[in-house]
Computed example of a mutant assay.
Amino acid sequence: MAANRWTPERFDDIADFWANRLVMESAALDIYGQLAGGSLGAEEVAERLGLEPGSTHLLLDALTGLGLLSKKGNRYSNSEAAARYLVPGLPDYMGHRLIAAQQSWEMWGHLSDALRSGQRQRDKHFFEDPEAARHLLLALHRDARSRAADILVRGDIDLSERHQMLDLGCGAGTYAVAFCRAHRQLHATLVDRPIAAAVARDVVASAGLEDRISVLEYDVDEHELPSNYDFIWISNVINSRSYNANRALFERLYHRLVPGGEVAVHDMIMDDTRTRPARGAVFSLYMLLSNGVGRCYTFQEVFDWLDGAGFHDIRWVREADDDMTLVIGTR
């Protein structure tokens, strides 16, 4: 998140949101995928996508003005940036991130309602909306690949002697795949709800690691958790749960580890003021809007959960340039 240097120009940038919404909407419409095969006229794009031709001219001209398309005569084609980042299926595709943001746009419009009521403003739970969940999971997958690589390079966690890993709330399974690739002796069990589990299976299969990584469909609050692990990874999970639900979860996790096993909590862990990292403070409002119970928690709160469950040697592993940090405890 941008540094806290506020200038008139920055306020202008915030107010000038039209282009942001336009880029999100164009990704959701798959404008760039339609143009991946070559240039098209506005009428052709409109026919393919079920749009009104005159409005489509306006849209494509605006995207050309922003530098995402180029125009020659009456035909449009992807710019170099759009061809790299906005065509579905390519390695650097950013569309999932933009579409996930577009899908939460209306929800943020109800922030005042949430502040008055203290209630969530999303009609469906995240996992009750398969399309929205898929885009968000794949957007997080893209971000997590670089974070997983950084964790391994820095040596934030030592997995050299670990053999059985539980990834609780695995999302797309990104971290387990990275950790198992780096440590050939490591096997992993991934646990999440059906929508996330389906995405994780695809990611595991693409990595060719089905022989060492299994994916289970679990609701962690309704099913008994598997046990006998020497490492538990729980990333981007506690922020969607209440304080008491997290406390109860870590009490259960303690008994799923073998003696000497470790749990690693990977999240936006807040300082005692609850204002840093700034992204975490803003994300807490997102959780108010989307589920009404979660928020980002302080290190002291996470420490208290782990300590109360029986963990020892609890430490906070931080990097100054990363909002996501680690709290590790040992059974």
Score class of each variant (00 low, 15 high):
Ala245Pro: 00
Ala149Leu: 07
Arg295Trp: 06
Trp18Pro: 00
Asp61Ser: 14
Leu168Pro: 00
Met268Trp: 05
Glu262Trp: 03
Val153Tyr: 11
Arg120His: 07
Gln164Glu: 12
Ala28Pro: 00
Asp113Met: 10
Val203Ile: 14
Ile232Cys: 05
Pro91Arg: 13
Lys124Glu: 09
Ala309Lys: 14
Glu262Gln: 11
Asp321Cys: 10
Glu210Ser: 11
Pro91Ala: 12
Arg142His: 11
Ser290Val: 06
Asp123Asn: 15
Ala281Leu: 06
Asp271Trp: 04
Ala196Phe: 01
Phe126Lys: 14
Leu190Ser: 04
Met270Thr: 05
Ser290His: 12
His96Gln: 03
Trp316Lys: 02
Phe126His: 14
Asp150Ser: 13
Asn78Tyr: 06
Ser79Ala: 09
Ala83Gly: 15
Pro8Gly: 13
Tyr254Asn: 10
Pro8Glu: 13
Cys170Arg: 00
His125Gly: 13
Gln103Ile: 01
Leu137Met: 12
Pro88Leu: 13
Gln121Met: 10
Glu251Asp: 14
His96Cys: 14
Asp123Trp: 15
Arg274Gly: 02
Asn4Lys: 11
Ser242Gln: 10
Ala188Trp: 02
Phe283His: 12
Asp322Thr: 14
Glu128Ala: 11
Gly95Tyr: 00
Lys124Arg: 08
Ile269His: 01
Arg276Val: 09
Thr298Ser: 11
Trp18His: 12
